[in-house]
Design a protein around this nucleic acid. Structure first.
Lengths: 255, 255
DNA sequence: CGTTAATTTGAAGACTCTCAACTGGTGTGG
DNA sequence: CCACACCAGTTGAGAGTCTTCAAATTAACG
Protein backbone atom coordinates (compact mmCIF):
# COMPACT_ATOMS: atom_id res chain seq x y z
CA UNK A 1 0.00 0.00 0.00
CA UNK A 2 1.22 3.50 -0.70
CA UNK A 3 0.24 6.99 0.20
CA UNK A 4 -1.27 7.40 -3.20
CA UNK A 5 -3.62 4.51 -2.55
CA UNK A 6 -4.89 6.44 0.40
CA UNK A 7 -5.39 9.57 -1.58
CA UNK A 8 -2.81 11.39 0.45
CA UNK A 9 -0.53 12.39 -2.34
CA UNK A 10 -1.70 15.97 -2.32
CA UNK A 11 -0.48 18.22 0.44
CA UNK A 12 -2.83 18.46 3.41
CA UNK A 13 -3.43 22.13 2.69
CA UNK A 14 -1.71 25.21 1.37
CA UNK A 15 0.07 25.79 4.63
CA UNK A 16 2.07 22.67 4.20
CA UNK A 17 5.30 24.03 2.83
CA UNK A 18 7.38 20.93 2.49
CA UNK A 19 6.89 17.22 2.44
CA UNK A 20 9.73 14.86 2.65
CA UNK A 21 9.25 11.15 2.29
CA UNK A 22 11.05 8.68 4.44
CA UNK A 23 10.39 5.07 5.09
CA UNK A 24 9.88 4.19 8.70
CA UNK A 25 13.03 2.09 8.67
CA UNK A 26 14.94 5.21 7.90
CA UNK A 27 13.47 6.94 10.90
CA UNK A 28 14.29 3.99 13.03
CA UNK A 29 17.81 3.48 11.79
CA UNK A 30 18.75 7.04 12.44
CA UNK A 31 19.56 8.12 8.95
CA UNK A 32 20.79 11.67 8.50
CA UNK A 33 17.44 13.33 7.91
CA UNK A 34 16.21 11.85 11.13
CA UNK A 35 19.18 12.71 13.25
CA UNK A 36 17.94 14.48 16.30
CA UNK A 37 14.46 13.18 15.84
CA UNK A 38 12.89 12.61 19.20
CA UNK A 39 10.62 9.94 17.87
CA UNK A 40 12.53 7.04 19.33
CA UNK A 41 12.51 8.35 22.87
CA UNK A 42 9.34 10.36 23.02
CA UNK A 43 6.88 9.32 20.53
CA UNK A 44 4.20 6.82 19.84
CA UNK A 45 6.62 4.16 18.70
CA UNK A 46 8.94 4.45 21.65
CA UNK A 47 8.43 0.88 22.82
CA UNK A 48 8.70 -0.74 19.44
CA UNK A 49 11.63 -2.89 18.57
CA UNK A 50 13.34 -3.11 15.27
CA UNK A 51 11.45 -6.20 14.24
CA UNK A 52 8.18 -4.36 14.70
CA UNK A 53 9.18 -1.69 12.28
CA UNK A 54 9.85 -4.25 9.64
CA UNK A 55 6.12 -4.92 9.68
CA UNK A 56 5.44 -1.51 8.26
CA UNK A 57 5.52 -1.13 4.54
CA UNK A 58 4.12 2.31 4.16
CA UNK A 59 5.94 5.60 4.02
CA UNK A 60 5.72 8.05 6.85
CA UNK A 61 5.44 11.65 5.78
CA UNK A 62 7.62 14.11 7.49
CA UNK A 63 6.11 17.53 7.17
CA UNK A 64 7.29 21.03 7.88
CA UNK A 65 4.55 23.46 8.76
CA UNK A 66 4.86 27.18 9.08
CA UNK A 67 3.39 29.04 12.04
CA UNK A 68 -0.39 29.34 11.89
CA UNK A 69 -0.74 26.33 9.60
CA UNK A 70 -3.78 24.11 9.92
CA UNK A 71 -2.92 20.46 10.46
CA UNK A 72 -6.57 19.51 10.15
CA UNK A 73 -10.00 20.94 10.79
CA UNK A 74 -12.67 19.61 13.07
CA UNK A 75 -14.80 17.23 11.02
CA UNK A 76 -12.05 16.42 8.51
CA UNK A 77 -11.60 12.81 7.49
CA UNK A 78 -9.24 11.35 10.05
CA UNK A 79 -6.84 9.04 8.28
CA UNK A 80 -3.64 9.80 10.10
CA UNK A 81 -2.15 10.36 13.50
CA UNK A 82 0.51 13.01 13.78
CA UNK A 83 3.58 13.02 15.94
CA UNK A 84 5.03 16.41 16.71
CA UNK A 85 8.80 16.64 16.57
CA UNK A 86 9.37 20.35 17.00
CA UNK A 87 7.15 23.35 17.47
CA UNK A 88 3.88 23.90 19.27
CA UNK A 89 0.33 23.10 18.24
CA UNK A 90 -3.01 24.27 19.60
CA UNK A 91 -6.19 22.24 19.63
CA UNK A 92 -9.18 24.48 19.08
CA UNK A 93 -12.77 23.65 19.84
CA UNK A 94 -15.51 25.83 18.45
CA UNK A 95 -18.67 26.65 20.36
CA UNK A 96 -22.16 27.00 19.02
CA UNK A 97 -21.97 30.78 18.99
CA UNK A 98 -18.86 30.85 16.84
CA UNK A 99 -16.45 31.70 19.59
CA UNK A 100 -13.54 29.39 20.15
CA UNK A 101 -11.66 27.89 23.01
CA UNK A 102 -8.21 26.36 22.97
CA UNK A 103 -8.43 23.13 24.92
CA UNK A 104 -4.88 21.87 24.81
CA UNK A 105 -1.35 22.57 23.64
CA UNK A 106 0.80 19.89 22.10
CA UNK A 107 4.55 19.82 22.32
CA UNK A 108 7.36 17.86 20.75
CA UNK A 109 6.81 14.17 21.37
CA UNK A 110 3.06 14.51 21.70
CA UNK A 111 0.63 12.71 19.46
CA UNK A 112 -2.00 14.75 17.66
CA UNK A 113 -5.34 13.48 16.43
CA UNK A 114 -5.29 10.20 18.30
CA UNK A 115 -9.04 9.96 17.76
CA UNK A 116 -8.23 8.97 14.18
CA UNK A 117 -7.60 5.46 15.49
CA UNK A 118 -11.16 5.22 16.78
CA UNK A 119 -13.37 7.30 14.53
CA UNK A 120 -13.22 8.80 11.10
CA UNK A 121 -13.46 12.47 11.93
CA UNK A 122 -11.15 14.77 13.82
CA UNK A 123 -12.66 16.39 16.87
CA UNK A 124 -10.72 19.61 16.99
CA UNK A 125 -8.96 21.95 14.69
CA UNK A 126 -5.20 21.64 15.06
CA UNK A 127 -3.13 24.72 14.29
CA UNK A 128 0.57 25.34 14.65
CA UNK A 129 1.56 28.25 16.87
CA UNK A 130 5.09 28.25 15.50
CA UNK A 131 6.86 26.56 12.66
CA UNK A 132 6.62 22.85 13.34
CA UNK A 133 8.04 19.58 12.12
CA UNK A 134 5.73 16.62 12.28
CA UNK A 135 5.40 13.02 11.16
CA UNK A 136 2.15 11.86 9.68
CA UNK A 137 1.39 8.25 10.43
CA UNK A 138 -1.50 6.60 8.59
CA UNK A 139 -3.97 5.02 10.96
CA UNK A 140 -3.59 1.81 9.00
CA UNK A 141 -0.04 1.64 10.17
CA UNK A 142 -1.15 2.06 13.74
CA UNK A 143 -3.83 -0.57 13.34
CA UNK A 144 -1.51 -3.01 11.69
CA UNK A 145 1.13 -2.60 14.34
CA UNK A 146 -1.58 -2.81 16.93
CA UNK A 147 -2.57 -6.22 15.66
CA UNK A 148 0.95 -7.53 15.35
CA UNK A 149 2.52 -6.28 18.51
CA UNK A 150 1.16 -5.60 21.94
CA UNK A 151 3.92 -3.11 22.63
CA UNK A 152 2.02 -0.35 20.92
CA UNK A 153 -1.00 -0.79 23.15
CA UNK A 154 0.66 0.50 26.22
CA UNK A 155 1.91 3.54 24.34
CA UNK A 156 -1.53 4.29 22.96
CA UNK A 157 -3.07 4.01 26.41
CA UNK A 158 -0.34 6.18 27.83
CA UNK A 159 -1.08 8.81 25.17
CA UNK A 160 -4.76 8.81 25.98
CA UNK A 161 -4.00 8.98 29.64
CA UNK A 162 -1.71 11.91 29.07
CA UNK A 163 -4.41 13.76 27.16
CA UNK A 164 -6.92 13.30 29.93
CA UNK A 165 -4.44 14.43 32.53
CA UNK A 166 -3.55 17.48 30.54
CA UNK A 167 -7.19 18.31 29.98
CA UNK A 168 -7.89 18.08 33.69
CA UNK A 169 -4.91 20.21 34.60
CA UNK A 170 -5.87 22.72 31.95
CA UNK A 171 -9.27 23.03 33.54
CA UNK A 172 -8.16 23.34 37.13
CA UNK A 173 -5.04 25.36 36.43
CA UNK A 174 -5.85 27.63 33.54
CA UNK A 175 -9.59 27.96 33.83
CA UNK A 176 -9.90 28.65 37.53
CA UNK A 177 -9.11 31.77 39.52
CA UNK A 178 -8.46 35.35 38.45
CA UNK A 179 -7.09 36.29 35.07
CA UNK A 180 -3.79 37.28 36.66
CA UNK A 181 -3.49 33.90 38.33
CA UNK A 182 -4.22 32.07 35.11
CA UNK A 183 -1.66 34.03 33.14
CA UNK A 184 0.96 33.31 35.76
CA UNK A 185 0.20 29.60 35.72
CA UNK A 186 0.31 29.58 31.94
CA UNK A 187 3.72 31.24 31.89
CA UNK A 188 5.01 28.75 34.43
CA UNK A 189 4.01 25.71 32.46
CA UNK A 190 5.11 27.00 29.10
CA UNK A 191 8.04 25.23 27.45
CA UNK A 192 11.28 27.08 28.06
CA UNK A 193 13.92 27.52 25.44
CA UNK A 194 17.37 28.27 26.73
CA UNK A 195 18.46 31.54 25.18
CA UNK A 196 21.89 32.41 23.82
CA UNK A 197 23.19 33.47 27.23
CA UNK A 198 21.83 30.35 28.88
CA UNK A 199 18.88 32.15 30.44
CA UNK A 200 15.57 30.39 30.08
CA UNK A 201 13.23 32.14 27.73
CA UNK A 202 9.61 31.43 27.08
CA UNK A 203 7.96 32.34 23.82
CA UNK A 204 4.44 33.57 24.19
CA UNK A 205 1.75 33.68 21.55
CA UNK A 206 -0.82 36.19 20.40
CA UNK A 207 -3.03 37.80 23.00
CA UNK A 208 -6.03 36.41 21.22
CA UNK A 209 -4.74 32.86 21.60
CA UNK A 210 -3.77 33.52 25.20
CA UNK A 211 -7.29 34.72 25.90
CA UNK A 212 -8.80 31.69 24.20
CA UNK A 213 -6.67 29.43 26.37
CA UNK A 214 -7.55 31.11 29.64
CA UNK A 215 -11.16 31.83 28.93
CA UNK A 216 -10.81 35.60 29.07
CA UNK A 217 -10.99 38.33 26.46
CA UNK A 218 -8.08 39.41 24.32
CA UNK A 219 -7.99 42.75 26.08
CA UNK A 220 -7.80 41.19 29.52
CA UNK A 221 -5.01 38.90 28.41
CA UNK A 222 -3.16 41.88 27.01
CA UNK A 223 -3.64 43.90 30.19
CA UNK A 224 -2.28 41.11 32.35
CA UNK A 225 0.81 40.63 30.22
CA UNK A 226 1.40 44.37 29.98
CA UNK A 227 1.07 44.65 33.73
CA UNK A 228 3.59 41.86 34.32
CA UNK A 229 5.97 43.59 31.96
CA UNK A 230 5.64 46.91 33.74
CA UNK A 231 6.27 45.29 37.11
CA UNK A 232 9.32 43.53 35.67
CA UNK A 233 8.07 40.08 36.59
CA UNK A 234 8.61 39.21 32.97
CA UNK A 235 11.12 40.95 30.75
CA UNK A 236 10.79 40.98 27.00
CA UNK A 237 13.91 39.84 25.20
CA UNK A 238 12.67 39.54 21.69
CA UNK A 239 9.20 40.08 20.36
CA UNK A 240 6.94 37.97 22.54
CA UNK A 241 9.85 36.14 24.16
CA UNK A 242 10.25 36.67 27.87
CA UNK A 243 12.55 35.97 30.74
CA UNK A 244 10.32 35.07 33.68
CA UNK A 245 10.79 35.59 37.38
CA UNK A 246 9.38 32.23 38.38
CA UNK A 247 9.45 32.99 42.07
CA UNK A 248 7.07 35.90 41.71
CA UNK A 249 5.00 34.04 39.14
CA UNK A 250 4.53 31.13 41.49
CA UNK A 251 3.43 33.58 44.14
CA UNK A 252 0.85 35.09 41.82
CA UNK A 253 -0.24 31.63 40.72
CA UNK A 254 -1.07 30.85 44.32
CA UNK A 255 1.93 28.54 44.76
CA UNK B 1 -6.05 -15.64 43.20
CA UNK B 2 -8.70 -14.21 45.48
CA UNK B 3 -9.61 -10.83 46.80
CA UNK B 4 -7.99 -11.71 50.06
CA UNK B 5 -4.70 -12.25 48.29
CA UNK B 6 -4.94 -8.70 47.10
CA UNK B 7 -5.69 -7.39 50.54
CA UNK B 8 -9.10 -6.25 49.47
CA UNK B 9 -11.17 -8.16 51.91
CA UNK B 10 -11.87 -5.10 54.01
CA UNK B 11 -14.41 -2.58 52.76
CA UNK B 12 -12.92 0.29 50.81
CA UNK B 13 -14.00 2.73 53.48
CA UNK B 14 -16.72 3.36 56.04
CA UNK B 15 -19.05 4.76 53.44
CA UNK B 16 -19.31 1.44 51.76
CA UNK B 17 -22.57 0.13 53.11
CA UNK B 18 -22.87 -3.18 51.39
CA UNK B 19 -20.65 -5.56 49.54
CA UNK B 20 -21.97 -8.46 47.62
CA UNK B 21 -19.70 -10.97 46.01
CA UNK B 22 -20.35 -12.43 42.63
CA UNK B 23 -18.07 -14.25 40.24
CA UNK B 24 -17.76 -12.68 36.87
CA UNK B 25 -19.33 -15.72 35.31
CA UNK B 26 -22.42 -14.97 37.28
CA UNK B 27 -22.51 -11.47 35.91
CA UNK B 28 -22.09 -12.78 32.42
CA UNK B 29 -24.58 -15.58 32.71
CA UNK B 30 -27.25 -13.27 33.90
CA UNK B 31 -27.95 -14.78 37.27
CA UNK B 32 -30.61 -13.13 39.36
CA UNK B 33 -28.45 -10.67 41.21
CA UNK B 34 -27.21 -9.31 37.90
CA UNK B 35 -30.54 -9.11 36.14
CA UNK B 36 -30.89 -5.69 34.68
CA UNK B 37 -27.21 -4.98 35.06
CA UNK B 38 -26.06 -2.78 32.24
CA UNK B 39 -22.58 -4.19 32.29
CA UNK B 40 -23.09 -6.28 29.20
CA UNK B 41 -24.24 -3.46 27.02
CA UNK B 42 -22.49 -0.45 28.46
CA UNK B 43 -19.49 -1.31 30.35
CA UNK B 44 -15.89 -2.11 29.94
CA UNK B 45 -16.53 -5.72 29.06
CA UNK B 46 -19.12 -5.01 26.40
CA UNK B 47 -17.16 -6.59 23.56
CA UNK B 48 -16.08 -9.67 25.41
CA UNK B 49 -17.44 -13.02 24.51
CA UNK B 50 -18.30 -15.81 26.83
CA UNK B 51 -15.03 -17.59 26.29
CA UNK B 52 -13.15 -14.52 27.43
CA UNK B 53 -14.95 -14.48 30.73
CA UNK B 54 -13.87 -17.99 31.40
CA UNK B 55 -10.35 -16.64 31.61
CA UNK B 56 -11.20 -14.75 34.73
CA UNK B 57 -10.94 -16.56 38.00
CA UNK B 58 -11.31 -13.71 40.37
CA UNK B 59 -14.41 -12.35 42.03
CA UNK B 60 -15.85 -9.02 41.07
CA UNK B 61 -17.21 -6.99 43.95
CA UNK B 62 -20.54 -5.39 43.52
CA UNK B 63 -20.78 -2.48 45.90
CA UNK B 64 -23.60 -0.24 47.02
CA UNK B 65 -22.51 3.23 48.04
CA UNK B 66 -24.62 5.83 49.75
CA UNK B 67 -24.66 9.42 48.55
CA UNK B 68 -21.52 11.34 49.40
CA UNK B 69 -19.43 8.20 49.73
CA UNK B 70 -15.79 8.29 48.74
CA UNK B 71 -14.86 5.63 46.19
CA UNK B 72 -11.22 6.57 46.47
CA UNK B 73 -9.02 9.52 47.25
CA UNK B 74 -6.41 11.11 45.07
CA UNK B 75 -3.15 9.38 45.79
CA UNK B 76 -4.74 6.14 47.00
CA UNK B 77 -3.25 2.88 45.82
CA UNK B 78 -4.98 2.14 42.54
CA UNK B 79 -5.68 -1.58 42.39
CA UNK B 80 -9.09 -1.59 40.80
CA UNK B 81 -11.15 -0.04 38.07
CA UNK B 82 -14.77 0.68 38.85
CA UNK B 83 -17.76 0.37 36.59
CA UNK B 84 -20.74 2.46 37.56
CA UNK B 85 -24.11 0.75 37.22
CA UNK B 86 -26.44 3.26 38.80
CA UNK B 87 -26.02 6.66 40.40
CA UNK B 88 -23.74 9.58 39.72
CA UNK B 89 -20.11 10.14 40.68
CA UNK B 90 -18.00 13.30 40.70
CA UNK B 91 -14.28 13.41 40.06
CA UNK B 92 -12.67 16.08 42.21
CA UNK B 93 -9.28 17.63 41.68
CA UNK B 94 -7.73 19.68 44.43
CA UNK B 95 -5.67 22.78 43.77
CA UNK B 96 -2.61 23.96 45.62
CA UNK B 97 -4.58 26.47 47.66
CA UNK B 98 -6.97 23.86 49.02
CA UNK B 99 -9.89 24.80 46.81
CA UNK B 100 -11.40 22.13 44.66
CA UNK B 101 -12.74 21.74 41.20
CA UNK B 102 -15.00 19.03 39.86
CA UNK B 103 -13.55 17.98 36.53
CA UNK B 104 -16.03 15.36 35.39
CA UNK B 105 -19.24 13.53 36.18
CA UNK B 106 -19.57 9.81 35.67
CA UNK B 107 -22.82 8.11 34.86
CA UNK B 108 -24.07 4.55 34.67
CA UNK B 109 -21.95 2.61 32.22
CA UNK B 110 -18.90 4.81 32.73
CA UNK B 111 -15.60 3.50 33.98
CA UNK B 112 -14.01 5.18 36.98
CA UNK B 113 -10.34 5.21 37.82
CA UNK B 114 -9.09 3.94 34.49
CA UNK B 115 -5.65 5.27 35.39
CA UNK B 116 -5.32 2.25 37.68
CA UNK B 117 -4.40 0.23 34.60
CA UNK B 118 -1.39 2.47 33.97
CA UNK B 119 -0.13 3.75 37.29
CA UNK B 120 -0.46 2.83 40.91
CA UNK B 121 -2.15 5.95 42.25
CA UNK B 122 -5.53 7.45 41.58
CA UNK B 123 -5.46 10.94 40.18
CA UNK B 124 -8.70 12.32 41.51
CA UNK B 125 -10.99 11.85 44.42
CA UNK B 126 -14.16 10.05 43.36
CA UNK B 127 -17.30 10.77 45.36
CA UNK B 128 -20.86 9.62 44.81
CA UNK B 129 -23.43 12.37 44.41
CA UNK B 130 -26.27 9.95 44.98
CA UNK B 131 -26.58 6.37 46.15
CA UNK B 132 -24.70 4.31 43.61
CA UNK B 133 -24.18 0.71 42.62
CA UNK B 134 -20.78 -0.14 41.24
CA UNK B 135 -18.62 -3.08 40.26
CA UNK B 136 -15.03 -3.13 41.36
CA UNK B 137 -12.74 -4.88 38.90
CA UNK B 138 -9.18 -5.64 39.98
CA UNK B 139 -6.63 -4.26 37.54
CA UNK B 140 -5.13 -7.72 37.39
CA UNK B 141 -8.31 -8.91 35.76
CA UNK B 142 -8.06 -6.14 33.21
CA UNK B 143 -4.41 -6.89 32.55
CA UNK B 144 -5.00 -10.59 32.23
CA UNK B 145 -7.88 -10.12 29.84
CA UNK B 146 -5.82 -7.57 28.02
CA UNK B 147 -3.14 -10.13 27.38
CA UNK B 148 -5.51 -12.86 26.36
CA UNK B 149 -7.94 -11.03 24.18
CA UNK B 150 -7.59 -8.04 21.91
CA UNK B 151 -11.26 -7.25 22.23
CA UNK B 152 -10.72 -5.41 25.46
CA UNK B 153 -8.24 -3.05 23.87
CA UNK B 154 -10.76 -1.29 21.78
CA UNK B 155 -13.02 -0.82 24.77
CA UNK B 156 -10.22 0.60 26.86
CA UNK B 157 -9.28 3.03 24.11
CA UNK B 158 -12.89 3.98 23.68
CA UNK B 159 -13.10 4.70 27.41
CA UNK B 160 -10.06 6.91 27.33
CA UNK B 161 -11.36 8.64 24.28
CA UNK B 162 -14.66 9.27 25.99
CA UNK B 163 -12.92 10.79 28.98
CA UNK B 164 -10.95 13.18 26.82
CA UNK B 165 -14.02 14.18 24.92
CA UNK B 166 -15.96 14.79 28.08
CA UNK B 167 -13.11 16.79 29.55
CA UNK B 168 -12.96 18.99 26.46
CA UNK B 169 -16.70 19.53 26.42
CA UNK B 170 -16.65 20.29 30.11
CA UNK B 171 -14.10 23.00 29.48
CA UNK B 172 -15.76 24.62 26.52
CA UNK B 173 -19.32 24.17 27.72
CA UNK B 174 -19.25 24.53 31.47
CA UNK B 175 -16.23 26.69 31.98
CA UNK B 176 -16.86 29.35 29.36
CA UNK B 177 -19.33 32.22 29.30
CA UNK B 178 -21.43 33.79 32.02
CA UNK B 179 -22.55 31.95 35.11
CA UNK B 180 -26.13 31.93 33.81
CA UNK B 181 -25.03 30.36 30.54
CA UNK B 182 -23.03 27.69 32.32
CA UNK B 183 -25.87 26.76 34.62
CA UNK B 184 -28.21 26.44 31.66
CA UNK B 185 -25.77 24.22 29.80
CA UNK B 186 -25.28 22.09 32.87
CA UNK B 187 -29.01 21.59 33.30
CA UNK B 188 -29.33 20.65 29.66
CA UNK B 189 -26.73 17.94 29.79
CA UNK B 190 -27.78 16.49 33.10
CA UNK B 191 -29.21 12.98 33.04
CA UNK B 192 -33.01 13.04 33.08
CA UNK B 193 -35.10 10.66 35.07
CA UNK B 194 -38.64 10.25 33.89
CA UNK B 195 -40.91 11.14 36.79
CA UNK B 196 -44.07 9.36 37.84
CA UNK B 197 -46.23 11.34 35.42
CA UNK B 198 -43.84 10.75 32.56
CA UNK B 199 -42.37 14.23 32.71
CA UNK B 200 -38.60 14.39 32.56
CA UNK B 201 -37.04 15.44 35.79
CA UNK B 202 -33.46 16.30 36.49
CA UNK B 203 -31.99 15.96 39.92
CA UNK B 204 -29.58 18.67 40.82
CA UNK B 205 -26.90 18.60 43.48
CA UNK B 206 -25.71 20.93 46.19
CA UNK B 207 -24.95 24.52 45.23
CA UNK B 208 -21.43 23.99 46.43
CA UNK B 209 -20.90 21.14 44.00
CA UNK B 210 -22.59 23.08 41.24
CA UNK B 211 -20.23 25.97 41.85
CA UNK B 212 -17.21 23.66 41.83
CA UNK B 213 -18.31 22.27 38.50
CA UNK B 214 -18.86 25.63 36.84
CA UNK B 215 -15.94 27.46 38.36
CA UNK B 216 -18.10 29.97 40.24
CA UNK B 217 -18.83 30.52 43.90
CA UNK B 218 -21.54 28.74 45.82
CA UNK B 219 -23.48 31.97 46.15
CA UNK B 220 -23.42 32.67 42.44
CA UNK B 221 -24.57 29.15 41.70
CA UNK B 222 -27.38 29.57 44.18
CA UNK B 223 -28.42 32.92 42.72
CA UNK B 224 -28.60 31.52 39.21
CA UNK B 225 -30.72 28.57 40.24
CA UNK B 226 -32.98 30.75 42.39
CA UNK B 227 -33.39 33.13 39.48
CA UNK B 228 -34.33 30.33 37.08
CA UNK B 229 -36.86 29.10 39.60
CA UNK B 230 -38.41 32.54 39.99
CA UNK B 231 -38.70 32.96 36.24
CA UNK B 232 -40.30 29.50 36.00
CA UNK B 233 -37.72 28.20 33.57
CA UNK B 234 -37.22 25.37 36.01
CA UNK B 235 -39.89 24.16 38.40
CA UNK B 236 -39.03 22.31 41.56
CA UNK B 237 -40.93 19.06 41.94
CA UNK B 238 -39.17 17.53 44.87
CA UNK B 239 -36.21 18.84 46.80
CA UNK B 240 -33.59 19.64 44.19
CA UNK B 241 -35.48 17.86 41.42
CA UNK B 242 -36.65 20.06 38.58
CA UNK B 243 -38.76 20.05 35.48
CA UNK B 244 -36.85 22.08 32.92
CA UNK B 245 -38.06 24.23 30.06
CA UNK B 246 -35.39 23.12 27.63
CA UNK B 247 -36.36 25.61 24.98
CA UNK B 248 -35.63 28.55 27.22
CA UNK B 249 -32.57 26.85 28.65
CA UNK B 250 -31.12 26.36 25.20
CA UNK B 251 -31.73 30.01 24.51
CA UNK B 252 -29.87 31.02 27.65
CA UNK B 253 -27.13 28.55 26.83
CA UNK B 254 -26.53 30.41 23.58
CA UNK B 255 -28.38 28.08 21.21
C1' DC C 1 6.18 54.98 3.26
C1' DG C 2 1.42 54.01 3.55
C1' DT C 3 -1.78 50.50 4.95
C1' DT C 4 -3.35 46.87 7.79
C1' DA C 5 -3.19 44.01 11.75
C1' DA C 6 -1.97 43.42 16.52
C1' DT C 7 -1.38 45.31 20.91
C1' DT C 8 -2.16 48.55 24.43
C1' DT C 9 -4.86 51.73 27.01
C1' DG C 10 -9.11 54.23 28.73
C1' DA C 11 -13.67 54.55 30.68
C1' DA C 12 -18.19 52.96 31.69
C1' DG C 13 -20.97 49.31 32.73
C1' DA C 14 -21.97 44.44 33.74
C1' DC C 15 -20.89 40.68 36.22
C1' DT C 16 -18.97 38.04 40.02
C1' DC C 17 -17.02 37.71 44.52
C1' DT C 18 -16.87 38.61 49.39
C1' DC C 19 -18.75 39.08 53.67
C1' DA C 20 -22.71 39.00 56.27
C1' DA C 21 -27.30 38.26 57.60
C1' DC C 22 -31.43 35.66 57.25
C1' DT C 23 -34.46 31.47 56.31
C1' DG C 24 -36.13 26.89 56.73
C1' DG C 25 -35.32 22.21 57.69
C1' DT C 26 -33.12 18.57 60.58
C1' DG C 27 -31.46 16.50 64.55
C1' DT C 28 -30.23 16.51 69.45
C1' DG C 29 -30.86 16.94 74.24
C1' DG C 30 -33.46 18.58 77.98
C1' DC D 1 -42.64 18.55 72.94
C1' DC D 2 -39.79 22.48 72.82
C1' DA D 3 -35.33 24.98 72.68
C1' DC D 4 -31.24 24.99 70.56
C1' DA D 5 -27.55 24.23 67.38
C1' DC D 6 -26.34 23.30 62.82
C1' DC D 7 -26.36 23.20 57.91
C1' DA D 8 -27.67 24.20 53.19
C1' DG D 9 -29.77 27.52 50.66
C1' DT D 10 -31.03 32.25 49.81
C1' DT D 11 -30.58 37.14 49.70
C1' DG D 12 -28.36 41.88 50.23
C1' DA D 13 -24.79 45.39 49.66
C1' DG D 14 -20.39 46.96 48.47
C1' DA D 15 -15.95 46.02 46.51
C1' DG D 16 -13.43 44.21 42.98
C1' DT D 17 -12.78 42.10 38.50
C1' DC D 18 -13.76 41.48 33.81
C1' DT D 19 -16.00 42.83 29.58
C1' DT D 20 -17.34 46.00 26.15
C1' DC D 21 -16.68 49.54 23.05
C1' DA D 22 -13.58 52.86 21.43
C1' DA D 23 -9.47 55.13 20.59
C1' DA D 24 -4.53 55.43 20.54
C1' DT D 25 -0.20 53.23 19.77
C1' DT D 26 2.93 50.08 17.88
C1' DA D 27 4.42 46.44 14.78
C1' DA D 28 4.30 44.13 10.36
C1' DC D 29 4.39 44.09 5.45
C1' DG D 30 4.09 45.02 0.62
Amino acid sequence: MTWEDLGWSAPLNEAEVAVRRSRIEAAWKGQPECAGCGIRELALFADLEEEDFSLIHMPIDEILFEGGAILYNAGDQAKAVITLRTGLVKLVQYLGDGSQRIVRLLRPGDTIGLEATLQDEYEHTAVTLRPALACRIPVDVVHKLSRETPRLHRQLMARWHQSVKQADDWLTGLSTGSARTRVARMLLQLPRLSGPDGVEICELFSREDLGAMLGVTTETASRMIAELKRSQVIVERKANAFVCDDRVLREIAGE
